[in-house]
Amino acid sequence: MLVTGAAAGIGLACARRFLTEGARVAMVDRDPERLSGARDSLAASERAFVIALDVSDAAAVREGVGEATRRMGGIDGIVNNAAVDLLRPFAEVSASDWNGVMAVNLVGAMEVCRAALDPLAASGRGAIVNVASAAGLRPVPGRVAYCASKAALIMATRALALELAERGIRANAVCPGAVDTGLFRASLGDAITVEDVKARYAQRRIGDAEEIAAAVAFLLSDEASFITGSALAVDGGRAFH
């Protein structure tokens, strides 16, 4: 298993879950120190390999995915979880802001998929899960580029699913709602409280990273062997997709 954005939050929860289930896991993140700290926090960390790279650097992605394949002896599943957020009024979103968001959230994910095509096909049960967002299904204010990048990731996932089915590779998206991570707390700003956010969800709460990891693990497993091209909202009742 290869997980990007694995140093914290949803990515770390995915890595922990896969290790618990006995898998080998390549943990990818751009921050080497946080990544090593995250790995050391895990049980069964001898099956976890850390690879520090920025997914917007295509050359580094190719090299890193190659290294992951060698160290794990193959790749059966990929979780493209690395993402950047951008909370900014539309009038102030520059072309370089757009490029920065798309370079990680869309192109980065696709480059990881492309670099891993051969090992995924060789696996015979290769599967991709792209962590999009409920904000890719229903818009949220102040995040035009972020919402667009996640909607693009969902459609790219469908198109990939269609094209890769003949190589035996499945591709699905998981669309989390608000999850209690550092990124989420930092994104709130002063005007909105956690209670305000909870009120938008039918379950009147925000999610845990483990709840997202459960859906990711399901879609990567053989339990989901006839599911491809789906976008699964894990959002306590927000998007009603």
Binding site: R158, A161, L162, A165, R170, G177, A202, Q203, G207, D208, E211, I212, A214, A215, A217, F218, F226, I227, T228, G229, S230, A231, L232, A233, V234, D235, G236, G237, A239, F240, H241
Partner: peptide
Amino acid sequence: GEGGRYITGQTLLVDGGRWML
């Protein structure tokens, strides 16, 4: 199961990629 506890109101396809929602 417990894996589905934060998933509600959703429409999920099991169709080998025929429709893609």
